[in-house]
Computed example of a mutant assay.
Amino acid sequence: MKVFLTVLALAVASASAFETVVRPKDIPKVPRVEGRITNGYPAEEGKAPYTVGLGFSGGWWCGGSIISNEWILTAAHCIGGDSVTVYFGATWRTNAQYTHWVGSGNFISHDSADIALIRIPHVDFWHMVNKVELPSYNDRYNDYNEWWAVACGWGGTYDGSPLPDYMQCVDLQIIHNSECVQYYGSGTVGDNIVCVRVVDGKGTCGGDSGGPLVTHDGAKLVGVTNWVSGAGCQAGHPAGFQRVTYHLDWIRDRTGIAYY
């Protein structure tokens, strides 16, 4: 990890009224790469061919999503260092179908939101390596309230567990922002955020930053992993993602990718 625990300040009148949040990448450093889906299930080969592992030169690990032959979508707080090694088509994290080294000149971070793009060398698609579609412009105002989605990543299956390298996935239900605001306040949960319920400790955790949240219905990328409760990944409190529909114009203007 690049940094130790980072707690975001809440822009509310009484900070004590709401919980803090923490970026999964910034959960305290351990002497091994940390990437975690808590209480999920092992992914069969090819389960999420759009999911990539991102090993940054600074020594931290994040996830990302293939959105075209030449672009990865991830979290801005992941971006850093001189380069990143992109792991494509890996079920076992370090046993990728292939990898690409990408220099920092190909990183594009959003100016004010926790979302970023990485330009990659052209990759061909097949059942182990493929893109995930973005929502269409017709769905840009869909809040996906109560929709089910899946998040996938690598690592331990509970807080403090040994690190298995096999990809894990977890099914999560999206909630209305008004429910999420009750935990974290409107200073953290803005229109650019989509939240999910964390039930029975099932959710995202350390190293899952930047990874995908993809709807069961239609298989659309609706979220980029951003933060979890400062009380812990398994505390049962909502987790937050960048809302992809909020950033469709930003993505289109930099990549040309759009669905109408």
Rank of each mutant, 00 (worst) to 15 (best):
T51Q: 14
K29A: 09
Y50F: 09
A48G: 00
Y50L: 00
K47V: 06
F56H: 09
A48F: 07
D26E: 08
K29I: 13
V30I: 15
R32M: 01
K47N: 06
K25E: 06
K25V: 07
V52T: 08
I27S: 15
S57N: 01
E45F: 01
K25N: 09
G40D: 08
R36C: 14
G58W: 02
T38V: 12
G40Q: 12
V33P: 00
P24I: 13
G40Y: 08
G53E: 13
V30L: 10
P42D: 08
E34F: 13
L54W: 07
T38I: 08
G46Y: 04
N39M: 01
E45D: 01
K25Y: 03
P24K: 15
T38F: 00
G58C: 05
G59Y: 13
D26K: 06
G40I: 10
P42G: 09
W60G: 02
W60P: 04
A43Q: 03
P24N: 14
F56L: 07
T38P: 06
V33D: 09
I27G: 12
K47Y: 11
Y41C: 01
R36G: 10
G55M: 14
A48Q: 00
P49W: 02
E44T: 15
V30G: 12
P31V: 00
I37D: 02
V30D: 11
F56N: 08
I37L: 03
G55P: 00
P31T: 11
V30E: 13
W60Y: 09
P42V: 13
P42S: 10
W60D: 09
G53P: 11
T38E: 05
R32E: 03
I37Q: 02
L54V: 05
R36E: 14
P24A: 11
P49I: 02
P24S: 11
E45Y: 00
R32N: 05
G40W: 04
Y41W: 08
G40R: 09
K25T: 08
R36F: 09
K25P: 04
R32T: 04
R32A: 05
T51V: 12
A43L: 04
I37V: 10
V33Q: 08
T38N: 07
T51M: 12
Y50R: 02
G53W: 11
G59H: 12
G55L: 15
P24W: 14
K47E: 03
G35P: 14
